[in-house]
Each structure stands twice: as C-alpha cells, then as structure tokens.
Computed example of a mutant assay.
Amino acid sequence: MTTPNDIKPALESDTVLVLAATGKTGRRVTALLGRAARPASRSSSTRFDWNDADTWEPALAGTTAVYVVPPDNPALLPEFVALAVKSGVTRLVLLSMRGAPDDDPFEAAIKESGVEWTILRPTWFMQNFDEDMFAAPVQHGELAVPAGQGIHPFIDVLDIAEVAVVALTQPGHAGQTYELSGSESLSFAEMLARIVTVTGDPILYTDVAADEFAASMRELGYPDEIADLVTMLLVRIRTGEEAHLSDGVQRVLGREPRTFDDYLGSSRFV
C-alpha cells in the first residue's frame, strides 16, 4: 500500500504548487505534502488568482508538479497549463468531478498538456455538511435539497487529498482517471440522522423542487451556471444515477475509503 507518508522524505521543499490551498481539498493536500508544498491562493503568501495572469508565473517558478483546482472559466486553463509546462512542470493532477463528460474542457486541457497527468473524479464531499454548502442550513436545523430519497456515496475530502498526493509524487499514475467515492451510499435523510446522533440537535430534511432550489441558490448570490450545475447534480441523486460506488481510493491507496461515521468523528460536529 502506498501512502502519502511514504514519499515526503524524498521530496524537495516547495516543489508542488497547490492551487486553492485554502479550500477543502487544497489545504489537506498542503498539509500532507508538508515542506514539499507551495500553497497558493488569493490570500496565501504565494498569491494566485485565476483572474490575474500576472500571478501565475511567480507561483509556478521552480515547481515540478501542480495540484489543479480549475477556474470557473474553462478558457483560462489551457493558457495556464501551457505556462506551467514552459516553466518546467512535468506532472499535473486535476480535481474534476464525477459525471464529467468525455469532452470536458478542463480535463481536455490537462490531457493535452504533453506532460504526465492524472484526473480525479470524486463524488460529493462529506465536508459539505460542516464546512460548505450545507453547513449553514444544517446548523439552523433544516436542509432542503432536490434529492428525494436518492442515495449517493459521499467521500471524505481527506481521501481525495491522499490520492492526490500519491498521484503528484509517485510513479504509476500518469494517464489515469480515478473515479473516487466513499464506501457506502446513503440518502440525505440517513446522513442527517447520523449527524443528529452526534450533535443531539434535530435537523429536518425537506425534498424541494429543482427550480425552487436553483432560485434559492441565486438568492444567496451563486452565479446562474453554478446554481444550475449544483441543482442538476442533486437531481441526479434523486433519480438514482449517482448511487454506484467507485474503486479509485482502493486502487491508489490500497484500502477502503473512510465511512460517513469516520468523517463525523473528526468533523466540526464533535
């Protein structure tokens, strides 16, 4: 079994550029890489902003691998990839998503880079319940999404980060697309019930219409394309298209993914 701890002693300092380093996956990738990481974001000491191309080259200087959390605008990624390769980067690992089409422009930019690449396609993140999209509704006692009683194998972000670090630093993962999921498919009602057993605070799950949910996201300030994408992905859970398990974590790490209960034990709910 290959783990991130196996590779850190062999890495030079500051050689892996980690984009979105303050995000859910980026900060965990950074922590696992240790001194080998160069964390970059709009608020990091190494500044990186997709909308400011002047920040790209300084962030890339001297690095040999990049953990790529893509921009909202797919047109920016080919330009960045070309600059990364010109700067000496020889390996790219992209955070994509389950269900990405074969002609996905983000994945195409990575695959056409001319250097070693790996694509990660994870399911929904367990950490959405305490760090992101679902956190505020859960805290206020009601989560309303258009997922019905559909089930989905949410994944612990730490599993994604560990897979990413191995792909960034070890041989044998070039040209691979890894479908990543958790170890069990659960409904939103089941996951919220497990959260309640930890917190003791009641949480109501409400199934809402897709258009109502999309409108609520827009009211919260999400762009139309994000609101529509998130709504579509939740409806896919409702219809049963997202229930299947994937084996990417097992293939890369040689172990089963963390369970939802494992996540709860280390979450902000405890």
Results as ranks from 00 to 15, higher is better:
Pro4Ser: 10
Tyr205Pro: 04
Ala144Cys: 12
Gly34Tyr: 08
Thr22Asn: 15
Ala243Val: 08
Thr55Asp: 13
Phe134Ala: 14
Trp50Gly: 08
Phe80Asn: 04
Ser181Gln: 06
Glu57Met: 11
Ser113Met: 07
Val29Ile: 13
Ala214Phe: 00
Asn51Trp: 07
Ala10Phe: 14
Ala82Tyr: 01
Leu77Met: 08
Leu32His: 02
Leu180Cys: 11
Val145Arg: 00
Leu186Cys: 10
Ala108Phe: 01
Phe125Leu: 12
Ala144Met: 00
Gly172Asp: 02
Gly248Gln: 06
Arg47Phe: 05
Ala108Cys: 09
Thr199Gln: 07
Thr206Tyr: 04
Val69Glu: 11
Tyr263Pro: 07
Glu162Met: 10
Ala161Asp: 07
Val166Asp: 07
Val69Thr: 15
Met191Ile: 02
Asp52Asn: 14
Tyr67Pro: 01
Ala189Cys: 03
Thr197Ile: 02
Thr169Pro: 01
Thr123Arg: 04
Glu131Val: 04
Val157Asp: 05
Arg218Trp: 03
Glu131Leu: 13
Asp224Met: 10
Lys24Ile: 14
Ala227Leu: 11
Arg218Cys: 09
Ala21Cys: 13
Ala215Val: 01
Thr2Met: 14
Arg238Asn: 12
Val138Asp: 04
Glu12Ala: 15
Arg38Gly: 13
Leu220Ala: 14
Pro71Glu: 09
Thr90Trp: 05
Phe188Arg: 03
Gly88Thr: 14
Thr123Pro: 00
Trp56Arg: 07
